[in-house]
Design a protein around this nucleic acid. Structure first.
Lengths: 163, 163
DNA sequence: GTCAGTGCAAACTTTTTGCAACTAC
DNA sequence: GTAGTTGCAAAAAGTTTGCACTGAC
């Protein structure tokens, strides 16, 4: 796919989620503040996972719009409720990622170095989607597979030998 | 199964994990302190998930052995490394559960009230176990399905109506 | 004009760290 | 005896909260 086409698609996604946010705010009688749109836009600019602090610094250095941490915390909860952002809890701090037009993926987490790698698996995806739950309306899910990445496997062996 | 038999099985599990801890400590040249065994024992007495604070108060009120929070944090990391405890990150604070002889299960998490419910699903379990990962040695996994529990579904409807 | 939403700083919660005292080896 | 561990208290990290001010409606 051509580069320019990719950019155009990204813009479409941004427009769409902006629209979705507007609808959500209207439906809930909440205000359409510039902060909320700026935060949503930034989130859909970032690829992959991010934490609140990262988001804060990204927006600050980007210079387009400055918001306080408190507003980030408030807004991210709103965006999670609006199903525009997904929340994860990998390590100490919460991690987030965009929810709309984001390919479902699973996570491998290295227990040695904490590195998080995404991967796709169609049959796994289907197995989870086909699972019927009692007394529960599922909206989304997270699968975290813990283990040791190849890099750390070697580091660990060296470490054990030297002891 | 008779009640007494269950108790006996539980005791066997405790003995086994104590043994496993001993082996782990020996293999890594670490000390066999009474604190470590007391903490392991307590964890395998608790059924289900627990946080550090819960564990702290449980041990305190139980009166058998008093340990500091710092030691709990240190020891739980050790036990996770020894594959005797599994770490989760549901909400703000870390949650843990015993790893040995604990039926693999999945988690449903209500995004409204935060309630965590466990469930079993054999085909899901197999689908995950059969997934091949590149450059990664998996030890265990966690599947969290987010959504709204039946209780909160009703509460939410009432709330929306009243708005 | 009104009240939801924002920024700031203080408070709070959970986890980590430095250091003296202790104890398993 | 000596280093690995523990307990304590202080610090750090992440998140929430109270309140005055601002701006979307």
């Amino acid at each position: 796919m051509a580069f320019e086409q990719k950019i155009r698609m990204e813009e479409n996604v941004k427009d769409t989620v902006r629209q979705l946010l507007t609808e959500y705010l209207q439906a809930n009688g909440q205000r359409k503040t510039p902060e909320r749109y700026a935060i949503l836009d930034t989130i859909y600019t970032i690829k992959g996972h991010f934490g609140i602090d990262e988001l804060y610094h990204y927006m600050e250095s980007n210079g387009k719009f400055r918001v306080s941490r408190a507003t980030l915390y408030n807004t991210i909860i709103l965006l999670v409720d609006a199903n525009l952002v997904i929340k994860h809890q990998f390590g100490t701090s919460s991690q987030y990622e965009r929810a709309y037009k984001n390919e479902t993926h699973h996570h491998m987490i290295c227990t040695e170095c904490g590195k998080v790698t995404e991967f796709q698996d169609e049959s796994l995806k289907q197995a989870i989607a086909n699972t019927k739950l009692k007394k529960f309306t599922a909206t989304h899910y997270s699968l975290y597979i813990y283990g040791v990445c190849s890099k750390c496997t070697w580091a660990k062996r060296r470490k054990k030998k030297s002891k």
